[in-house]
């Protein structure tokens, strides 16, 4: 998948440039995957290496069922409460239920 290649490159760049990598893509992904039993997940470090800005491009979880965007984002913010003390910016793009993911 293209996105995983992009991610690998970004992570490498982050490792080279980043002096204090407080929060990592792997850490964010792992937490979300476990807490929300995510079926699909795409997270990018958009900070250019400082680890303080992330984008959740896609997250597919059954737990989004019956929830509107605000509630879905709150769920994600809740899972990342600890990390958000370090992260300045968290952009959340697509939050889908497995059903929505199939049709979109």
């Amino acid at each position: 998948m293209l996105s995983s290649t992009v991610r690998a490159v970004k992570t490498t760049l982050g490792g080279v440039r980043g002096v204090r990598m407080a929060v990592t893509v792997a850490q964010v992904e792992q937490k979300l995957k476990e807490a929300l039993q995510a079926q699909e997940i795409e997270v990018f470090d958009t900070s250019g290496g400082c680890g303080a800005s992330f984008e959740v491009s896609l997250l597919v979880s059954e737990q989004f069922e019956g929830k509107r965007a605000l509630q879905r984002h709150r769920l994600i913010n809740g899972v990342l409460a600890e990390e958000l003390k370090e992260i300045h910016a968290l952009s959340i793009k697509k939050t889908l239920t497995p059903e929505e993911f199939k049709t979109k």
Partner: peptide
Amino acid sequence: SQWPTFPQVYIEGEFYGGCDI
């Protein structure tokens, strides 16, 4: 707001969301 980042948007006295929403 129980929301960790800015911007924060309020419409009609209610929290609407952040930039993405």
